[in-house]
Structure formats: structure tokens, C-alpha cells
């Protein structure tokens, strides 16, 4: 373990301890804000697995969020299952859907994949709007939870899962295969790496987190309808947060979610109009100045500092 990864690990552990204790001393507003940050931290971490590490620009994550939300809602409302069981089923169904769709869509590359995933999400929105079991266009009311702090911990669980996934993924055997596929799929293939199963693994892991977040979100907000959960905004925010923090890094997406959500909250309080302008401008600035995110900017600055130091030491001799 290098000093740097050890430092990051210690920082993450300290942050986790603070996060666990947070609802004890913080007011309801801040707990709610933090729950939202965790939610998007988990979505960004999830997108990072398929979009960052694997290099497949998924824009249909909301499909899995919706599957998780509706499965949880339907099982709680119609089958009277406890929340945890319904949530588990929602996550499992999202994974199954990802394996099925991934088998078809992950053969596409680049823009074609992005558009196809978006199409898949929109199809599911139409299906949800027209099925009797989902309540159709008028949506679905879930039972109201007796307390709201548990949602904070559920969302904390998803973001921890996402960050752990992001940390373990690149160091695993599958992670190396996925890096090879991202860098050059043809070359990976002639080395004996069969691309599709690994891509499905990344896509299904992404779907598991989107699905789990969807299930928690549904119970937390107590009302879902097709446009709220099958909403491309979830994907776009996850993408921007990942790009801000650093795609293909373990904690970058979470850092991106924290920064963006806090900035967004401040700006929304100042002006509803401004906050959308800000969002668009940020995307443009990011792509121009830091296409690999803040993690890369920090690394580069470290490099500059080291270079200057080496230069000074040379001149002393």
C-alpha cells in the first residue's frame, strides 16, 4: 500500500465515522441534504464503473433506478413485503435487466451505445406509464415511513458500496481486463480477454447501485411516477459529478457529488434561474480545462510542485 492510498483510505475512514455520527448532532435539513448527496454520490460511483473504468457512456442509468423504485413500491404496496426485502428484489431485478440489455447493447460502441441506453430508458418510462400495476401515469403512493433518519443510513450504505466498488474494481483481475477493454478492445481480445462478460459485469454493478438507490428513493419520497424516476437528469448529474471528480478514480465521483450538490444548493437558494446556467457552464468548463476531473488536476499540481523542487535542488549543486 503506497502512502498515498493509505492516506486516502484513512481520510475515507474518518469521513465515514463523521458521516455515521452526523444525524446525532445535525438538524433535519442538513441530514436531508446529506442524504441527497449520498444518493448522487452512489449514482456517480455507479456510473464511474461503466462510464469511467469501462469507457461505455451509459445514459440510461435511470432505467435501473426506475426498475428499483417500481419493484420496491409494487412489492411493498401490493405484496406487503417489508422495505428491506422489497429493496433487495428491486436491486436484483435491476441487475437481471442489465444482464439482459447489456448482452444486446454492450456490443455497440461509443455514441451508439449512449443513444441505445437512452432509448431503453425511455421505453421503460412508456411501459411504466401504461401498465395497470404501476398505477400508470398517475403514479404510485408508497406507505409513509415512521422515521426519516433511516433513509440517511440506507443512502450512506449505497455510497459506501459504490466507493468500495470503485476502490476494489481497478485492483481486481476483472478490473485489469476491463482496463484493457477500455484502452483497446481488439488488442484485449487477442490476449484472450473475452470482452462481453466483463462489460456486463461492470454494467450490472452499475445497475445494482442505480436500482438500490431507486428503491430507497421511492420509499423516502413516498411518491413515484414515470417521469420522476425514469428521468435522464439522474444520469446527467452522475456523469457531470464523475467528470468533475475524476472518472476512473475510486473517490472522485463521491467528491464530485459533494461539491456539486453543495454548490447547487447554495445557488438554488440564491436564484432558481442561475443554478441551471451554472450547471451548463460548469459542464463546458470541465470539458475544456479538466477533462479528467479534479483528481487529475490535483495530481498534475503535485507533479508541478515536485518538478519545481527538483529544479531548485539541481540549481543548488
Amino acid at each position: 500500500m503506497t502512502p498515498r492510498t493509505f492516506g486516502l483510505g484513512a481520510l475515507a475512514a474518518a469521513a465515514l465515522a463523521v458521516a455515521v455520527a452526523f444525524p446525532v448532532f445535525a438538524g433535519g435539513y442538513y441530514v436531508r441534504l446529506a442524504t441527497g448527496i449520498f444518493m448522487f454520490g452512489a449514482l456517480a460511483s455507479a456510473w464511474n464503473l461503466i462510464g469511467g473504468y469501462t469507457g461505455y457512456p451509459d445514459f440510461g442509468g435511470a432505467a435501473f433506478l426506475g426498475i428499483g423504485a417500481y419493484t420496491t413500491g409494487i412489492l411493498m404496496l401490493r405484496a406487503h413485503l417489508p422495505f428491506a426485502a422489497a429493496l433487495l428484489a428491486g436491486g436484483a431485478l435491476a441487475v437481471l435487466a442489465a444482464v439482459g440489455m447489456g448482452t444486446l447493447l454492450l456490443r455497440l460502441r461509443g455514441h451508439y451505445f449512449a443513444i441505445a441506453t437512452l432509448g431503453f430508458m425511455l421505453v421503460l418510462r412508456q411501459v411504466a406509464a401504461n401498465l395497470p400495476i404501476t398505477g400508470g401515469g398517475s403514479g404510485m403512493n408508497l406507505p409513509i415511513a415512521s422515521a426519516f433518519t433511516p433513509f440517511y443510513y440506507w443512502m450512506l450504505g449505497t455510497v459506501v458500496l459504490g466507493a468500495l466498488g470503485g476502490a476494489i474494481f481497478p485492483r481486481s483481475r476483472a478490473g485489469y481486463a476491463i482496463a484493457a477493454i477500455r484502452e483497446n478492445q481488439d488488442a484485449a481480445q487477442v490476449l484472450g480477454i473475452e470482452p462481453l462478460p466483463y462489460k456486463i459485469l461492470a454494467y450490472a454493478s452499475n445497475a445494482l447501485l442505480f436500482g438500490a438507490v431507486g428503491g430507497i428513493y421511492a420509499y423516502w419520497f413516498t411518491f413515484i411516477d414515470p417521469p420522476t424516476v425514469f428521468n435522464i437528469d439522474f444520469s446527467i448529474q452522475a456523469v457531470v459529478m464523475t467528470l468533475l471528480g475524476g472518472p476512473g478514480t475510486a473517490l472522485g465521483p463521491v467528491a464530485g457529488a459533494i461539491i456539486l450538490k453543495i454548490l447547487d444548493t447554495i445557488l438554488t437558494n440564491i436564484s432558481l434561474f442561475l443554478h441551471n446556467v451554472f450547471f451548463g457552464a460548469l459542464v463546458c468548463l470541465l470539458i475544456i480545462f479538466a477533462p479528467r476531473g479534479l483528481a487529475e488536476v490535483l495530481r498534475r499540481r503535485g507533479g508541478i510542485v515536485r518538478a519545481i523542487r527538483a529544479e531548485l535542488e539541481d540549481s543548488r549543486v
Binding site: Y176, A177, A179, A180, E183, N184, D186, A187, A188, L191, I193
Partner: peptide, 14 residues
């Protein structure tokens, strides 16, 4: 057709 952003060691081990 190397993996450009991976290290030489990672390329060889792959």
C-alpha cells in the same frame, strides 16, 4: 495496439 494509459508492466502482465 498497446494499452496506452496502462504501464508497460501492466501491458506485459495482461
Amino acid at each position: 495496439r498497446l494499452f496506452p494509459d496502462l504501464t508497460v508492466a501492466e501491458n506485459l502482465m495482461l
